[in-house]
Design a protein around this nucleic acid. Structure first.
Lengths: 144, 144
DNA sequence: CGGCATCCGAGTAGATACTG
DNA sequence: CAGTATCTACTCGGATGCCG
């Protein structure tokens, strides 16, 4: 498997980007709250990513369908994650006070923007999943 | 703040990508292990991301420097994460049996490839951190 | 149907101390 | 210096049951 080649130039550019993002942070006197840390930790956990991906595929989803598609998640955790994602503006929640009640979730425009990033990450993961498994096996053998 | 505009066409393309990735998965009879879930959950946690970013900035880092830069992490957790990242091939670990011992960590080529994705995610988070905070405040007010 | 309240267990993180 | 060992504390997730 060929790995995407990163040139030295590209590495330099990456370093510059990182400097731009974190250059102001003094690790000896760290800020109370780092927005980037905070935001990423709230939306990159595995369940949130799966929620985003499912809503990227099905434009509108109700609670229990979402729960079925994201197999393995509990109601509690799903509703927690949905609330956070709604709060931060990734998804919208529309309640129709019918009987039985109907609640629909969908990505906001902001959520669609985030979906692009999640997709890039997911595509990368898929592309190199074989590579990673191979790396892991090699590592295990090196120990044995 | 302007949000990146996602066209309907782009949304369709996203849906297609997702279908390509997960279309084969039957949620009524889910696979034991989903590689994408697995891989993403192992490398998107907040500490791993910070390790990757720091090694993207400082090409070579020793354990204690890394620990200082990633303020807030404990030795235990850092060494655990480093081991996983090494195992999966993101970073390399070189030990020099001097006294005192010296161990150097750096990104592999594979890790540099991953860094690109992490950077995209981090830049997005930074760009929209204000937006997210605003979303959150608005949400809180809606409740009160 | 779409949740929320409660309880409980496992796993994880943190603090501290220690070692080659 | 670069971890490991141990113990504790606590968070998180899962299961269950209930309600509008």
């Amino acid at each position: 498997m060929e790995i995407e080649t990163i040139t030295d130039n590209q590495k330099l550019r990456s370093a510059k980007k990182i400097k731009k993002m974190f250059g102001h942070v003094d690790y000896r006197d760290p800020p109370e709250m780092c927005p980037i840390r905070h935001i990423m930790s709230l939306a990159t956990d595995k369940w949130s990513i799966l929620i985003i991906l499912n809503l990227g595929f099905f434009p509108i989803l109700r609670f229990n369908r979402l729960k079925r598609y994201i197999y393995g998640i509990s109601s509690k955790v799903l509703s927690e994650r949905l609330k956070v994602l709604e709060m931060d503006g990734y998804i919208s929640r529309t309640m129709y006070p019918e009987v039985p009640i109907r609640v629909e979730y969908q990505l906001t425009e902001f959520g669609h923007s985030y979906l692009q990033r999640v997709l890039e990450m997911a595509e990368w993961s898929e592309k190199y999943s074989g590579q990673i498994m191979a790396n892991r096996e090699k590592y295990q053998k090196g120990l044995g």
